[in-house]
Design a protein around this nucleic acid. Structure first.
Lengths: 340, 340
DNA sequence: TTGTAAGCGTTATCAA
DNA sequence: TTGATAACGCTTACAA
C-alpha cells in the first residue's frame, strides 16, 4: 500500500517506495544526463506513478538556483492586442517548459516600476515587457529595476526597439506605418489626424513617424498628432474632442493601435458621422476584431502572437542574436474607401 | 561597501550586513507577527535597502510549504471574454499578494487534463478553471487531477455552477438568459436559433435552457440549438451553414457568447444579409466590443472581471461560503430592433 | 527579544 | 552506476 501521504508525495517518498536513494530517484525523474540502470529506472518510475509524484517546482528552483518562470508584463490583459501577445507567449512557453506569470501595469509607469521590482522575487528566467516607455523620465525610473533583474540572471526582453544591453524583438513598425501612409495617399486621402500615446514608446513613435513620412511622400499631410493614449476609450475621447473642433469630411483618422481606431469609429458613429465615405479610419495590429467591425478596419497587420513567441525564445535561448524585425502588412478594408 | 553580490542578495547577506541573525532579519523583512526591537528593525531595513534585497519566493514557498501562486486555466487568453476574466483575476491577485500563472487549454479537454496535472508542480494555492466541462467523459477524466490538486492543498475554484466538493463562483446564467428570451419575445421575435457549444459546460447549458424557457414563455420558439463551439470562428461557421440551409428574415440568432454572436454577424454581413431588420443577433457577456460593432450587439451583461476577482477570493479565503450568484443584466442594442 | 539550528523538497558534489 | 551528504534560501520551533 502506498502511503496515503498527507501532502504531496515527495521525492523522498518515491525513493523509499522504490528502495533507492534520493539521488537515484532524482536522476531518474528529473532530466539528468546521468545513467541509471534500467532495473532501477523502472522501479522509480513505477513508484512515482503509484504515488502520483510531481516534482515541486519551487523546491527545484531553489535547489537549482534558477526558476522556470517567464514573467509577462502588459498594460492590460483584457486588451485584445496584449491578449494576442499573451497567447503567443503562453504557447511558446509551454513548448519550452516554462511557466508564465502575468503582471499588469494598467498603463501606469510608476506601477510598472513596482511590478518589475516585485517580480524580482520570482527570480524569473526572463521578463517580457510590452509597450513600455523606452525614453524619458519613466524609462529612467524603470531602468534600474530592469538592470537589477538582469544582474541576478533574469533576461529582460523588450518588445519593440529595445534599449541598449537588453534583448528585444520587434516588428517593422516604421516600415508598415510608412506603407500605410503611402496606401492611404494612393487612395486619395490628403488630410490625416493621428491619435497616439505620449511620446516615449518606440513602437508608437515609430508608427507616427513612419506614417507621417509615407503619407507625405505621396502628397498627404498629417494635420495633427493627438496625444491621447492607447486604449479604446482614449481613441473614443480623442475623436469626440476632434469632432467638437470640427472634423472635415474626407479626413482619415489613424489610431496607433486598432483598439484606439475602434474607439474613434464608435465616437464617429455616435456623433452621426459615417465611417468611411465621410471620415475614414485606420489602425495598427489587425486584431481579430478589426474585420468584425462594420465597415472593416483598414490596418497594418502585426504578427502579435509570433512576436510573443519570439520573445519567449529570446528569453530561453542562451545564445541569442537579434533576429530580423518581423514583417508587417497593410490590410485595406472598408473604413478607408477610395476617395473619388 | 555593500558586497556587489554575484547573484541576488540573500537574507543571509542582509543579516550579515545588519549584524543580526538570520532569524531576526527574516522576522523584520517577511511578515512575522513577532516583535523585533526598533533599533534592529531599522538596521535590517537599511541593509535590505542597500543590498536591494527581495525575498526569493521559491525559497519562501519551499520553506513555508505553501506557495503564493494562483493558477488560471482558460481556453484562450486572446479571447475577449477570457481576457476580461484574467484581468479581474490579476487585479484581485495583486491585491492579495498572489502571483498569477496562466495556462491555456485551447478548448481541448485532453489538454486541459495535462495542463492541470502539470500545474500541480507549482503547488498552487489555488486553481481557477474557466469554461470547463462539468459533465460527461471529459469531466470524468479531469476530476481526478482536480482532486489530486485539492488533496495537496490547492483550492480548486470552478467558474460557473461547480461540481460537488469544489468551490465555485457563478453568474446567474439561467436567469439572464431567460430575461433575454423574454425581452426578445417582447420585441416581437418568434423564431430563434441558438448557437452553442456541445453540452457539458454548465454555463452554456444554462444559457441555452434559460433562453429557451424565457423565449417560450412569451410565445417564442427555439427552432434549433446548433452545436458549434464557443469561439468567433465557430459562430461564423455555424451562421454560414445556417445561411446555406435558409435563414428566414425575422429570425434571431443567439450565440452563447458574444464572440460567437460576433462571428455570426460577420457571416451574415458577408452573405449580404443585414444584421438587425433582416436577421437579428444576440449574445452573452457584453464584452467591450459588443458596443463597438455596428449595429451594437444585444447581449446579457456578465461581470466577468468581478467574477475573476471573486474567484481569487474563493482561493484566498480560508473560510469560504458560496456567495450569491452574480446578477446579470440584459442590454438591448441595435442588433435586435423591435419587430414591426 | 534574539539567536541557534532543524527543517522544507530538490539538486549536485564527491566518495565508494 | 549508486548513495551519502552538503548545499539552495528561507521559515520556525525551541533555547537562551
Amino acid at each position: 500500500m502506498p502511503a496515503p501521504a498527507r501532502g504531496a508525495a515527495t521525492l523522498h517518498d518515491v525513493a523509499r517506495e522504490a528502495g533507492v536513494s534520493l539521488a537515484t530517484a532524482s536522476r531518474v525523474l528529473n532530466g539528468s544526463t546521468r545513467k541509471v540502470a534500467d532495473s532501477y529506472r523502472v522501479r522509480v518510475e513505477a513508484a512515482a506513478e503509484i504515488l502520483g509524484y510531481t516534482a515541486n517546482l519551487s523546491a527545484q528552483a531553489t535547489a537549482r538556483g534558477t526558476s522556470a518562470v517567464v514573467a509577462l508584463v502588459v498594460a492590460d490583459v483584457a486588451d485584445p492586442g496584449f491578449g494576442q501577445l499573451a497567447a503567443g507567449v503562453t504557447r511558446a512557453a509551454e513548448e519550452t517548459g516554462l511557466v508564465v506569470t502575468v503582471a499588469v501595469t494598467g498603463r501606469d509607469p510608476a506601477r510598472e516600476v513596482r511590478v518589475v521590482r516585485a517580480l524580482r522575487g520570482q527570480r524569473p528566467r526572463g521578463l517580457i515587457l510590452a509597450a513600455s516607455r523606452a525614453e524619458g523620465e519613466d524609462a529612467a525610473a524603470l531602468r534600474p529595476e530592469l538592470d537589477a533583474l538582469a544582474q541576478i540572471g533574469g533576461r529582460v526582453v523588450v518588445l519593440g526597439r529595445g534599449a541598449s544591453g537588453l534583448r528585444s524583438v520587434s516588428t517593422d513598425d516604421r516600415g508598415g506605418a510608412s506603407a500605410l501612409g503611402e496606401e492611404l495617399a494612393r487612395l486619395g486621402y490628403r488630410d490625416a489626424v493621428v491619435v497616439a500615446a505620449d511620446e516615449g514608446i518606440h513602437t508608437f513613435d515609430d508608427r507616427v513617424a513612419g506614417f507621417t513620412a509615407g503619407f507625405a511622400r505621396h502628397g498627404g499631410r498629417v494635420a495633427e498628432v493627438r496625444r491621447a493614449g492607447i486604449s479604446r476609450d482614449a481613441g473614443h475621447a480623442a475623436a469626440t474632442a476632434l469632432l467638437g473642433e470640427g472634423l472635415a469630411p474626407g479626413t482619415v483618422v489613424v489610431g496607433v493601435r486598432d483598439v484606439v481606431a475602434i474607439g474613434v469609429m464608435a465616437a464617429l458613429r455616435e456623433a452621426g458621422r459615417q465611417v468611411g465615405a465621410d471620415v475614414a479610419v485606420a489602425g495598427f495590429d489587425d486584431i481579430p476584431l478589426a474585420r468584425d467591425v462594420a465597415p472593416g478596419l483598414t490596418t497594418v497587420r502585426v504578427p502579435l502572437e509570433e512576436l510573443g513567441a519570439r520573445a519567449v525564445r529570446a528569453v530561453a535561448d542562451a545564445e541569442w542574436v537579434a533576429g530580423p524585425t518581423l514583417p508587417v502588412e497593410v490590410v485595406v478594408r472598408g473604413s478607408t474607401p477610395p476617395r473619388a
